[in-house]
Write a protein that binds this DNA or RNA. Structure first.
Lengths: 384, 384
DNA sequence: CATGTTATGTTCTTGCCCGGAACAAAATGT
DNA sequence: ACATTTTGTTCCGGGCAAGAACATAACATG
């Protein structure tokens, strides 16, 4: 709750208005935003006028919907700020841009050599596409990012890579976060978890990562490394995990569990292929594959039940392999989840839902945190 | 982010000022509050004057601390609002009052018959002490409270008791919450977790309950039943828990685990005595008792490590039996916690700290949530 | 003991903000 | 053609916090 003078009030309302435009599922009208924010038509007129002169919004006549004087649609200004989003996966990366309102456009993608040199590569791509419209960059990385800079990515053998040493000083304002958390944030802002007050989201890839989502924001923890739900001993596995702990949930859920089961080849590209292969064989009736999928679903459900007792979500989103598991084994997941719930919770169990943002979840989330840095009083002040 | 007119600004700042007085560890001076809120001395003067006329604050000359014109101390007004707090335990209850600033005074206590009739009893006690200063009542109850009204308390055999049927219509504004969560809230507001951005707190009694504390607020979940961390399968127990799930952490941590180990008598009063007895015998060198304490500490540490991976707290508070466990077995708890942490977290493990609020934690937390209902623009408007 | 220093309180002015009222404008419905 | 509905626009009024200047009450210094 920051200090407020009457001048700050204007800034505050400008931010609210821009945030309303950004968060709307479709471009809203000036009149609807005024109603939504509970401000007068006169005030809305003033605010929109200022934001248009600041090249943040553009007004175009709206198609009339009935009686009454027609109003205008609020669109991002053609010279308005853009957020860049980068998704750094285990062997490739993608660069995209998002404009106010959430429209995402892919700009470029590439492979990388699994060393931090990828950041130089990405930096060059950013420089190629950057214009003076670029306001902030968000980066999604498949691993924990302590304090927003120190990377510990076991599957790339990055133990404590300091991001600041790899981001050129010429980089624009940059925020970095974990891909699973950003996938969850994307669902909370623009997907199936929109409007849910308390939600959990899990992104299931090789292992399982996730985030607690409260009122559309992802919980980060004290060192920005919250969300490693996959490294809790929820399913009784006796194995030691490569994270250093024993019995991690991730040993039983995700592609790695399938790879271990079928003695597949190591290596992440190969593992991903094997994962798809197992899904395909299960669909064709292969009993061993089906049983592996069953085990994955059961382990997933057990963990979801346990975590629901602790965090009481209204809904649980799943992405990555989780979408397939819901499609193939919804009943099994829900049953095992219910079995893990305290009895009195079972009547009102959390909804388990498949993410709707899809593979661009991390990219979308990265763009959202970049915009979060833009839609602030501080940034807005630079524009006036 | 609510609507704001310039008139709301004044209300907003009145709330901020009162909140600053309430949250301060000791009565603050007018000048210090002005600095803290970053408002001018003139504005502070106006605000304090208004709040004094509204019988919310009283100003008394402050002892001078050095050079400069002496300022005034901001104290609760002698006719100002009071919050009542009730702690309903398994066989007894306590009623206390809190004034602005956090001073807690016990008013009355009693036994009860383990039926919801306790609420009638408590209601009569509240009526005995209520004056027109009473602004809100907070109640702490040892069990989950779904949606703030439906109670599921297994050890009292309350399956789905509707609180609204037992709270007389004449009751003042009342908020109800779980005792473990409120104990954590008390530590976050007035105890060892004050100022910690992300914290977990666990109240260890017969079993273990807790809460995630974010910026001094307790996470409630979608149905107000978050925090049942004790009902996650974190320690590999094969037993079925009376909650309906299997392998709950609470089966291995808390007084119930000691009772089961020593085949002690059922019943909560007896269990509590046995718990103290085991602690005493362990202190006297009894090997079986010491081993039981060890097992409790090990199970506690394992769970804390697992949960820290997921939630990344800066500090973990413990109350109830947890205070004794820290005193007797800090090393063991920290070791097993570290073993459950992902390796890269071990260098910066969460601090494990004993609560400092003590047995009045639930009562203090209940008073805090009652004051939370008072220190709002809405309530304040009724006072002007 | 007189004077300077420091921190705070008080008063007045100024710039800004939002809401409300009244009116204008642009569409639909009859 | 005219009423109705919804929105945009203009102007005014009440209100707020900041800043400057001054007043005040303590301590510090010699």
């Amino acid at each position: 709750m920051a200090t407020m003078t009457s001048a700050d009030l204007r800034v505050h309302n400008r931010v609210r208005l821009l945030r309303a435009v950004h968060d709307a599922p479709a471009p809203p009208t000036r009149a609807s935003v005024a109603r939504r924010l509970a401000i007068g038509r006169n005030t809305a007129g003033t605010l929109v006028g200022e934001l248009e002169r600041a090249r943040l919004l553009r007004e175009v006549p709206a198609a009339s919907t009935g009686r009454g004087r027609p109003t205008t649609l609020l669109l991002p200004h053609p010279e308005g700020p853009l957020a860049f989003a980068v998704d750094v996966r285990e062997d490739s990366w993608t660069l995209a841009q998002m404009s106010l309102g959430g429209e995402l456009t892919e700009l470029e993608s590439g492979e990388h050599d699994r060393t931090p040199a990828v950041f130089t590569q990405v930096g060059e791509a950013v420089a190629r596409h950057a214009t003076d419209r670029l306001a902030a960059v968000g980066i999604a990385i498949a691993g924990p990012i302590r304090d927003g800079r120190r990377l510990h990515i076991s599957h790339l053998d990055w133990d404590e890579v300091d991001l600041d040493e790899h981001l050129d000083r010429a980089w624009p304002a940059t925020v970095v976060d974990n891909d699973a958390r950003l996938a969850g944030l994307a669902e909370a802002r623009r997907g199936v978890l929109r409007g849910v007050g308390t939600a959990m989201h899990f992104h299931i890839d090789f292992d399982i990562g996730g985030t607690l989502l409260l009122a559309g924001d992802a919980q980060t923890g004290a060192h920005n490394i919250a969300g490693e739900f996959g490294h809790m001993p929820l399913t009784g596995s006796p194995l030691r995990c490569m994270c250093g702990a024993v019995g991690c949930w991730s040993l039983d859920v995700g592609v790695n569990a399938l790879v271990r089961r079928f003695g597949g080849p190591p290596g992440y590209g190969a593992g991903r292929r094997l994962g798809r292969e197992v899904l395909r064989r299960a669909a064709e009736g292969d009993a061993a594959a089906a049983s592996a999928i069953d085990d994955n679903a059961v382990a997933l459900g057990r963990g979801l039940g346990a975590l629901s007792n602790a965090l009481d979500p209204e809904a649980i989103g799943l992405s990555g392999l989780g979408v397939e598991l819901i499609r193939l084994r919804r009943g099994l997941i829900e049953e095992t989840c219910a079995a893990g719930l305290m009895a009195f919770r079972r009547a009102e169990a959390p909804r388990i839902v498949a993410g709707t943002v899809g593979e661009i979840g991390p990219l979308t989330g990265a763009a959202e945190i970049a915009f979060d840095a833009v839609l602030t009083p501080e940034w807005l002040r630079t524009r006036f």
